[in-house]
Amino acid sequence: MTKRFPSITNKLAPAAAVAAVLAIWFLCCEGEIVPAYMLPSPADVFRAFVRNIGDLLRQAAVTLQEAMYGLLIGIALTFAVAVLMDRFRFLYKALYPLLVVTQTIPTIAIAPLLVLWMGFGMAPKITLVVITTFFPITVGLLSGFGCVDPDCIHLMRTMGAGRMQIFRFVKLPCAAPDFFAGLRISASYAVVGAVVSEWLGGFEGLGVYMTRVKKAYAYDRMFAVILFISAISLLLMGAVALMEKAAMPWKQKGVSS
C-alpha cells in the first residue's frame, strides 16, 4: 500500500496525530478534567465557528488584507535589500548583524510603538507584517545568492555575460528554492503579525474580534478564531507551495538545483 498509494500513506500519519489530539481534547472536556470555561470542547468550538462564520469571514477579510499588503511590500523590500547586499559586500557586512538583531526583538514589543506612531488604522498593522516577514525571505534570498556554484558564474563570464545577465540567468533561479522556503514561513508569520498588531489597537480584524470575545469570556468563540487563524495560515502556506511548484517545474522531475 505504501508503494501503491504514497500520497495517501504520507498523509495518514499527520491525520492520525490530529485525530489523536482532538480525541484527547474531547475526552479531557467530557471527563471534566479541565473545566469547560477554561477549555471548551471541540464540539462547542465547532458550533461557535458555524454560528459566527459571517463575523469571522468579515473580520478575516480585514486581517487578510493587512497580511497581504504587508507580505507584498515585505517581498519587494526584501528583493531590493537582498540584491543590494549581494552586490555590495560592504552593505552585507554592515546590515546582516542588524538584520539578526531585529529578530531578537519580540513583535509584541514593537506593536504598541507602531500604534503610538501611526495610529489605529491599517498602517501599523501592515508595518508590523512587513517587519515580521522581512527576515525569513531576506535570509533565504541571501543564502540562495551565496550558494551559486562559482563555476557557473565563471562559465557565464566566458560567454561574455554581464553582471545583470549573471543575476538573471544564474543567481535568481538558483535562489528560487530558498526564496520560496522563506516565503512559506513569512506567509504564516504575516497573518499572525496582523493579528498581534490588531490586539493592541484597531477597529476591525480577527485580532480585534479576539479581544472582544475574550472580554466577553466567550472562550468557545476565542478557540474558533484561533483555529480559523491557523487554517488561514495553512491556506496561505499551501498557496505558496502551489506557486513554488509552478515557478520551479524542474523540481517536479526529481531534480535538485
Partner: peptide, 18 residues
C-alpha cells in the same frame, strides 16, 4: 575580452532549472 573564445569547463555546468 571575454565572450570571444568559447570555453567548456570540466563540469558540464548545465543549469538544472533550464
Amino acid at each position: 575580452k571575454p565572450g570571444k573564445v568559447s570555453y567548456m569547463l570540466q563540469k558540464d555546468l548545465l543549469f538544472p532549472y533550464r
